[in-house]
Computed example of a mutant assay.
Amino acid sequence: MTHLLFFTVEGLTCALPLAETRQVVGMVELQPPTGKRRGGAGTMNLRGRTVPVYSLRRLLGLADRPPLPTDVLVIAHLSGECVALWADGVQGVQGSPIQFPPEADASSPPGMVLTEDGKIIIYDLGAFLAAEETAQYPLRPGTAGTGGGTPPHDAEKAGEVLTERARAFAQPEEEETGEIPFSELLTFRLADQEYAIKTQYIREVFIMHEITPVPGVPDFIVGICAVRGEIISVVDLRALFSIPKRGLTDLNRVIVLSDGTVTFGILADYITDIYIRPTDQFSPVEPETTPIEQRYLLGVTEGSVLVLDAAAILADPAMMIGQTRK
């Protein structure tokens, strides 16, 4: 069983072995490309390291468009270096029994296979990127892109977001600049309210599959599930924080939180965005606006998004199965 990271490009579903991926970040303002590379879209500064960015749209022969704040960069390992693949969005991680070709197969494009259901599996990133300019990618009938051009957006605001992200990612991890600190946030919808969590505490996001109930645990622990061979508990924040179950809800995403010691998943209706925000722009949360205790909150953004304190949630002893909540 190989675990794959699935992402989308113009309506197509692509995947890369999870073992080859380093992280996924929000799209940033790109610098001009250095040299001529097939599919090269530019470079990004990742903590002081220049990382080449490849456009999957160009690599797959799809219509090009400008970067959007909703796009993502999949940072992958390649021969001891890092490269970034520009995609539209991430679907999650899933195990796959697919067998990769043991050697070059003239019937398939270099480094990739096309599954029966139209998915593009990039099993050898080096070969995929090194393919000749004239290489053809015979997508199966019915799998052509469905994006229909650039989605509506505010170009000026989008440019500001991408520039802000680029600046934040360019800061060395250990550098103390005295400037305003930034946080990368993942936002998600739950019970008709939008929440955010710092991505440094997010290990992965996947579509919810089978969850096994566990008797005798607090009601906010809905059960356990297996994630890449690891058994984790899954938490319903609505029950943990006594959030009223108002509005339509469809809990179909699991956000895996981890601080290196404690790991568990939380349920969400769906993921809404990934962006960078100066931490000094968080406003205090008025107690009457939410039943969530202040110790679990970092603040609220100008867009009324409640920013949860993942460190406090992970440190809560109640998160461990077998313990009772204080």
Rank of each mutant, 00 (worst) to 15 (best):
R295D: 08
D154S: 09
Q294F: 02
E133C: 03
G26T: 12
D219H: 12
V25Y: 01
E194M: 06
L306N: 07
F188M: 06
L73D: 04
G145C: 13
P138I: 05
A268Q: 01
R58P: 01
I255M: 08
G322A: 00
Q323R: 07
L125E: 04
C225T: 14
S108A: 15
V24Y: 10
I321Y: 02
P69N: 01
D259G: 05
P152I: 01
L314Q: 13
L185E: 06
E164V: 00
T249F: 01
V93E: 04
Q171F: 12
M208C: 09
Y54F: 15
G149H: 06
R203N: 08
L139G: 08
K36P: 00
R165T: 14
R140A: 13
F182I: 03
D117R: 05
H77I: 01
A318W: 09
T43I: 06
L306D: 11
R47S: 11
V305M: 07
G42R: 13
F282G: 12
A63W: 02
F100S: 01
T301S: 07
E20D: 15
E204C: 06
R140G: 09
R253F: 00
V214M: 08
Q294H: 11
L56T: 03
E230Y: 04
S304V: 13
G260P: 03
V234N: 08
T212S: 12
V83D: 01
P141H: 05
G61D: 08
G111E: 05
R22C: 10
K245D: 13
D259L: 01
S55W: 07
Q91V: 07
C225F: 04
V72S: 08
R22W: 00
R238A: 06
I98K: 02
S108V: 12
V300L: 02
F6D: 04
G260Y: 03
I180V: 14
T187Y: 06
L267I: 02
V113K: 08
V90I: 12
Y195L: 05
M208T: 14
V28L: 15
L62R: 15
Y195V: 11
R47G: 07
S183H: 10
I276F: 04
K157S: 08
R37H: 05
R49I: 10
L139N: 13
A196L: 07
G26K: 11
Q323V: 09
R167F: 12
K198I: 00
G322V: 10
H3A: 11
P215D: 02
H3K: 08
T134D: 14
L59M: 15
E293R: 13
A87L: 03
P101E: 05
D316H: 04
V256L: 13
L139A: 12
A158H: 06
A168S: 07
D154Y: 07
S79C: 02
G216S: 08
A15H: 10
